[in-house]
Write a protein that binds this DNA or RNA. Structure first.
Lengths: 134, 134
DNA sequence: CGGATTGTCAACCGATCGGTTGAGGATTTT
DNA sequence: AAAATCCTCAACCGATCGGTTGACAATCCG
């Protein structure tokens, strides 16, 4: 009889090439991939908003907007506090910072003074078989 | 008889609250919202890769990986040049820069020394009706 | 030529997405 | 108590997503 680690969520995620980090980024980028939700975030940058206020600018049912907000919440981009019958939403910048940082890894590829050189280097590491392109 | 602007794609997009800019961000964030595609970008940061090389690390068919690459391409995150029978992919940093810049708008919400003050100010612009929270 | 190699395409599948409607819970207002 | 307000929930719908398989186009190699 061998001692085996009990299967758990974390092992599963590792096995499937997921990390908690990756799962969060999935949710954040997915949330950002919709213009309605991006507009809601813009709105929240000016201050807290109720669900109704967030929904107002959009030509859709309140239920639909509510789902968008829920998705923002799931991604950690928005926090909600219930005050009586109204739900007040605030921007939660941490998740945005995470996404920002992830993208920052690639910053050197667009804002370095050595753009051209770097590009050449990146191309060079697969030797060019002197063929025509296209 | 009135002179009316001929309907065109741009007008349609404006009317529907889309801008070309927004559509691009949709594609970019959507592409980034999948761990397979993010891993592919990481790979491309080390140099150009063929479709086969990009697909190799993943436990999925080549056709599936090919679709991911296509989605990265559609988002402008990757450029492809066909060289004989192999397709060589390179990172295209501009789209990433756009996404990065979009998120940067919110930078003040996470890295300012006035985090707490700003938060108070954002909360303050909707007057607090002295009620209990939750 | 014939056979690998590289990659796309089209059809299909189940799951998720983004929207709707209707019902109703909870709270506030009258 | 009754009505209005704020919002969620559940069921449903068509479209898109992420994967599969099989066929095949194109190129390289023997």
């Amino acid at each position: 009889m061998t001692i085996r680690a009990a299967p758990n969520t974390f092992n599963l995620m590792v096995e499937l090439h997921f990390t908690p980090d990756s799962a969060r980024l999935d949710a954040v980028f997915h949330a950002l991939g919709d213009p309605t939700r991006r507009n809601m975030l813009r709105d929240l940058a000016s201050g807290q908003r109720t669900v109704g206020e967030l929904a107002a600018p959009f030509d859709m049912s309140l239920a639909a907007a509510s789902k968008h907000i829920r998705s923002l919440e799931k991604a950690g981009l928005v926090r909600r506090t219930i005050r009586g019958r109204t739900h007040v939403c605030r921007l939660e910048p941490r998740a945005l910072a995470d996404a920002h940082q992830w993208i920052s890894f690639y910053e050197r590829f667009w804002n370095s003074r050595f753009d051209v050189l770097e590009d050449l280097l990146r191309r060079a590491d697969t030797p060019d078989p002197q063929g025509d392109e296209q």
